[in-house]
Design a protein around this nucleic acid. Structure first.
Lengths: 221, 221
DNA sequence: ACCTGAACACCGTTCAAGT
DNA sequence: ACCTGAACACCGTTCAAGT
């Protein structure tokens, strides 16, 4: 049933996802869904839960490798179901969909990194926020209907004549076009941002490392 | 007209936002809206554009201070209109709502930091993704109707008897409850995550600094 | 335990017609 | 240039009734 919902989402996208379409797929009356699930939101939360089910890394890893695996696994999960990308941010904040085991694992790893107390909370929130940030945007859907029209609009906007007052943009245009947020006309499913994601993970882990080092240095004094 | 749309959004939230309700507020037929705007999505994109209009920092700042101001300004803008939080991620990826002037400014600043070529693109994407990540989640709406019920559910989930197998979580519970993603029952409007956001910005800027330093060191060799 | 069937109160959007 | 008015093809959800 939520497997069917996930199929529906993958096949037709979030915009077209409805209880009624799901019922059609199942060959059942729309109202039958409500015996299995409390509401549309509840249903989608369960779908998200299934998508993220096996994203938790092994705890034997060093905290840096653990985080790297977490970011990679999360991105891979969304890559398999890009239509769910916008849901995850919305549902992660609400607690459902995520088990406390995952929370415990992350807190443990950040503890090993040297964070404790209020700083542990801050590091935890930092990781969760960063985890969702890049991927949500990378796989955000492009309006499907006028895809070609939109592509043309972005291209026109980036045509060299328009860019007279934006020298840095103009100079780097070939590298930026369709490979940078705001300047893209395809989502991450068609045009993945692999290298940017790698650097993003480097930045987050590197930043945490520096924070941890400084706390350690302060303790030694 | 899009001012009225913003008011409607602020007053009743995104879930209740509809062309028809906006028309009611304006004392006009729903279909009249379509003379001013192409679609509901288009309307919301314009609303987002207005919200983010004055978020660009002065370019005289050092790149670190520029980024700090950018993150702070963005958060302040969303704090004023939290109902728009989920829209921004969706619309930033699509180019509308954001001027090329902002893109040029950010690229310039990252150039000053020492990034160039493909690494400039990666740094740019990192900043945009990070910019949206935290705030989108912090201000994501809590289901309004069953607010009390949900709060109770989270509390029950975090009751000490449930936490026997999660020692780190249990030990830090007072610091985590309602102050950490997944473990909250209020959104950032009611329970802001100020300290976590500060650390988050530290991590992103610190991570970028380290990346820039290493590139500089490699060039010197 | 699980589904049907009717009904309610909504949506976004198109298009012709008015002023 | 800007709005009315009718219409179309949808929604999520409730509730009583069936099996």
């Amino acid at each position: 049933m939520i497997a069917a919902a996930l199929d529906e989402l993958d096949d037709h996208g979030l915009a077209a996802f409805s209880i009624r379409n799901l019922a059609r797929r199942l060959g059942v009356y729309p109202t039958a869904i409500y015996w299995h699930v409390e509401s549309r939101d509840d249903l989608l939360a369960e779908v998200v839960a299934r998508i993220l089910a096996d994203a938790e890394p092994r705890r034997a890893l060093s905290w840096q490798r653990y985080l790297r695996a977490l970011f990679g696994g999360y991105r891979a999960a969304i890559k398999r179901h890009p239509s769910a990308a916008p849901l995850v941010g919305a549902h992660l904040v609400g607690n459902r969909s995520i088990g406390l085991g995952f929370v415990e694992g992350l807190l443990t790893k950040l503890g090993e990194a040297g964070f404790a107390g209020a700083e542990l909370v801050a590091a935890y929130n930092t990781v969760i926020a960063a985890l969702v940030g890049f991927v949500t945007q990378e796989f955000a859907a492009v309006p499907d209907d006028d895809r070609e029209r939109w592509r043309a609009a972005v291209r026109r906007r980036l045509s060299r004549s328009q860019l007279a007052s934006y020298p840095v943009l103009r100079r780097n245009l070939p590298l930026l076009a369709n490979k940078a947020f705001i300047l893209r006309w395809q989502s991450g499913s068609q045009a993945p941002l692999d290298r940017s994601f790698e650097r993003y993970v480097d930045v987050v882990i590197g930043g945490l490392e520096r924070l941890a080092d400084r706390r350690a240095a302060r303790r030694r004094r």
